[in-house]
């Protein structure tokens, strides 16, 4: 015997199940996510978290690489000015070494060379966001004093990325531009040039010319290494972007709701709901009460 309560209970249960299914689909459609918490699917939650963590690291690396690239570009630009300065100094030295100039002419050239020295010292004390990048770790104080002596540290600093890769961000200035007192590099060559021109020492000017050419090669070599670092940073940035896109795709594959499938299921559930409501309304007309009335 099928009792009336039996029908009512069965219908109520089916309608509740149906409403629950519709609500679940509507939540998926509203959020666009199939998995937004661990209990949605604990099996893939760990994998999803791993992908999201990697994506977060890639985003952070990309941002750090971009900031580092800006810094290296600025450093490279400063060194580009040093190259121009050294080329001018070589011209002066070549003119001063040809033996045809008077002492006064040489002293005049010495004044120009002195100005170039000051420009190179200024370039050596280049600051990026307040940091003296050629002072090694002593980024809070100028790398060179007013006469071109190096006063930074021998240790340098690097930007470290999530995969452990590092790119140098501060430099030991004397290995790039030399030191005036030690007579090395650009600082030493320019100091020697200025002093030789001041006293009309043609041999000294000739020696300074050779030094200047070596200093120019040294700066060019540094710029080449900067170019290598810039390429590395660009690679980190582009790789982070590409990997990030792939990770985002993988995350989407795992966690996003299949909207097409959701729409189909929603339609089926709504049809079922209509059918159940239809059965409920027809129950009354099926009763013997209507026949006997």
């Amino acid at each position: 015997m099928i009792s009336d309560v039996y029908f009512a209970q069965a219908l109520a249960y089916d309608l509740n199940q149906n409403s629950s299914a519709i609500q679940q689909i509507q939540t998926q459609v509203a959020t666009g996510k199939r998995v937004s918490k661990a209990s949605d699917d604990p099996t893939i939650w760990g994998e999803l978290r791993s992908l999201e963590s990697a994506n977060q690291a890639q985003t952070s690396d990309s941002s750090a690489a971009s900031a580092s690239l800006d810094r290296l570009n600025a450093v490279d630009s400063a060194m580009g000015q040093v190259v121009t300065d050294l080329q001018q100094a070589i011209s002066i030295a070549t003119e001063g070494a040809n033996g045809t100039l008077s002492a006064a002419d040489m002293q005049a050239l010495g004044v120009s060379a002195s100005a170039i020295l000051k420009q190179v010292i200024t370039a050596g004390n280049f600051q990026y966001n307040g940091a003296y990048v050629f002072a090694g770790e002593k980024t809070g104080t100028p790398a060179f004093d007013a006469t071109g002596n190096y006063q930074g540290s021998t240790a340098t600093n690097s930007q470290v990325f999530s995969n452990g890769l590092s790119v140098q961000m501060s430099y030991e200035g004397d290995t790039v531009l030399g030191d005036a007192t030690l007579g090395t590099g650009a600082m030493g060559a320019l100091t020697n040039l200025v002093s030789s021109l001041d006293v009309g020492d043609q041999a000294g000017v000739q020696s300074a010319l050779t030094q200047l050419q070596q200093a120019l090669a040294q700066v060019s070599q540094f710029r080449a290494s900067l170019g290598g670092a810039e390429t590395l940073l660009q690679n980190i940035q582009s790789q982070a972007t590409a990997t990030g896109q792939q990770l985002q795709q993988n995350i989407s594959d795992l966690s996003d709701a299949d909207l097409a499938q959701a729409a189909v299921t929603l339609s089926l559930e709504q049809d079922q709901q209509q059918a159940l409501v239809g059965i409920a309304s027809s129950l009354k007309s099926m009763s013997l009460v209507n026949v006997l009335a």
Binding site: Q56, G130, N157, S162
Partner: peptide, 20 residues
């Protein structure tokens, strides 16, 4: 977990410009 990683990533970013 993401906030922990965000903090640790911030430390990594600081490594390149610790005076910033």
């Amino acid at each position: 977990g993401q906030s922990v990683q965000d903090l640790l990533n911030q430390f990594l970013s600081l490594s390149g410009s610790p005076e910033d």
